[in-house]
Simulated scan of single mutants.
Amino acid sequence: MKTLYTAKATTTGGRKGHVKTEDGPIDMPLSMPKGLGGDGGDGVNPEQLFGSAYSACFGGALNLVAQQHKVDLGDYSVTAHISIHKEDDGNLLLSAVLDSYMPGVSDIETAETLVNEAHEICPFSRATRDNIDVTLNVLRDE
């Protein structure tokens, strides 16, 4: 396997600390959400960072699949909802809901095909497959 890119990020102080990437674009405080017992401060949290990364990666995969099918997505977007859950035994789990909005795709069957194919090739989807629940939604203008 050939490595194409490696990102390096370092966090000090855990969920209430600071995260910084080696090359500098991310350099920000972390805060614990109120829902997890924190103060809900101005910093970001791991779920927000994961959701940002997953939605961007999935959007890239969706665009690639659309190009392969010669479909214009229009001004598309992917919104990731990342939730953290507590099991009865106290273990914590993540789940993800990915809402894909493709105004250039009028046919729902085509939209669903694109989303499902994107889910097969997206590196984040592949990494989370069989590890967390992922729900795929196609959003429509009503």
Rank of each mutant, 00 (worst) to 15 (best):
F50C: 07
S100N: 10
H119Q: 04
L98Q: 06
L93R: 14
L98T: 01
D75Q: 13
C57R: 01
I84P: 07
N116L: 14
Y54S: 05
H81L: 11
G90E: 14
V115M: 02
F50M: 08
T113W: 13
E47Y: 07
V65K: 02
P33A: 02
A111S: 04
V71R: 07
L94P: 01
L92A: 03
D88W: 01
S52D: 05
P33Y: 10
S95V: 05
E47S: 08
I82N: 09
G37P: 06
F58I: 02
A80K: 06
A111V: 02
Q67A: 15
P29R: 04
F58P: 00
A53L: 05
V78G: 01
L93N: 14
E120H: 02
D42W: 03
P33K: 02
D99M: 12
A80W: 06
E117L: 09
F50Y: 15
G38I: 04
A53S: 14
V105I: 08
N91H: 15
L93G: 09
A80L: 11
S55Q: 10
S83E: 15
D107G: 05
G104F: 09
G43C: 09
C122I: 02
E47G: 09
C57P: 00
T79F: 13
F58K: 00
L92G: 01
C57M: 11
V78R: 00
N91G: 03
S31F: 07
S77G: 13
D75K: 13
I121V: 15
V115A: 06
E109L: 08
V97D: 14
H81W: 07
H85M: 05
I84W: 14
T110S: 07
G40W: 11
G37S: 09
V115Q: 03
Y101A: 11
S52Q: 05
S95M: 02
T113D: 14
K70R: 15
C57Q: 06
D99I: 10
D107T: 04
N116M: 07
C57D: 12
S55H: 08
P46C: 12
G90Y: 14
I84T: 14
D72E: 12
G74F: 08
N63D: 12
V78K: 00
A61F: 04
Y54A: 03
S106G: 15
H69I: 00
A118K: 00
L98C: 09
P46E: 11
E87K: 08
E87I: 00
S52L: 11
